[in-house]
Simulated scan of single mutants.
Amino acid sequence: MIKIKFLKKNERIIYFEITGHANHGEYGEDIVCSAVSSVSQMTLNGLLEILKLDGRLQYEETEGYIVCDLDKSDLTDDEIEKSEILIQSMYSYLKAVKESYGKYVEIRVREV
């Protein structure tokens, strides 16, 4: 199962963590893993390459694991606001994946 955790502060997502594998299909053919991986990679790439936050964004990425912590990053208010758009888009997409494949995806949202 893929486990996704979001932390919110003042209604803004400030942290996300994605772990695990869906095990919906064979390795390389698992559409649930592909969907979650694609949107999380797209979001992280947008933060790093489009918003140019590389070097200041606190994140970690390994096989089956991705974490991003805006709260611990050295970002301006404007950069956080722009980051929020990307992360909210990812959140919206992941909710849709969960609606279709809830047996393979767990999403937790916590206010801090």
Rank of each mutant, 00 (worst) to 15 (best):
K3N: 14
I4E: 06
K8D: 03
K9A: 07
N10Q: 06
N10P: 00
E11K: 09
E11A: 09
I14R: 02
I14D: 01
Y15H: 05
F16G: 07
E17W: 01
H21Y: 07
H21T: 13
H21Q: 12
N23K: 12
N23D: 14
G25T: 14
G25P: 13
E26P: 03
E26S: 14
Y27P: 07
Y27M: 14
E29W: 00
D30P: 11
I31P: 01
C33S: 05
C33Q: 03
A35M: 08
A35T: 09
V36Q: 01
S37R: 08
S40P: 00
M42R: 00
M42W: 02
L44M: 12
L44R: 07
L44W: 06
N45H: 12
L47T: 01
L47M: 01
L48R: 06
L48I: 11
L48W: 00
E49W: 00
I50R: 03
I50L: 10
L51C: 08
L51I: 06
K52E: 13
G55E: 09
R56F: 04
R56S: 10
Y59K: 14
E61R: 13
T62S: 15
T62Q: 10
E63Q: 15
V67N: 05
V67E: 12
C68T: 10
L70R: 11
L70P: 04
L70V: 14
D71Q: 10
D71N: 12
S73V: 04
D74Q: 15
T76S: 15
D77A: 13
E79F: 09
I80P: 01
I80Q: 09
E81H: 04
S83G: 06
S83M: 05
E84H: 09
E84D: 11
I85C: 11
L86G: 07
L86M: 10
I87M: 07
I87K: 07
I87A: 10
M90W: 03
Y91T: 08
Y91D: 05
S92N: 14
Y93N: 04
Y93W: 00
Y93V: 13
Y93R: 02
K95M: 07
K95C: 04
K95R: 12
A96R: 10
A96T: 10
K98Y: 02
E99V: 08
S100W: 01
Y101G: 15
G102S: 15
V105W: 01
V105R: 08
E106P: 00
I107P: 02
I107Q: 05
R108N: 04
V109A: 04
V109I: 07
V109R: 01
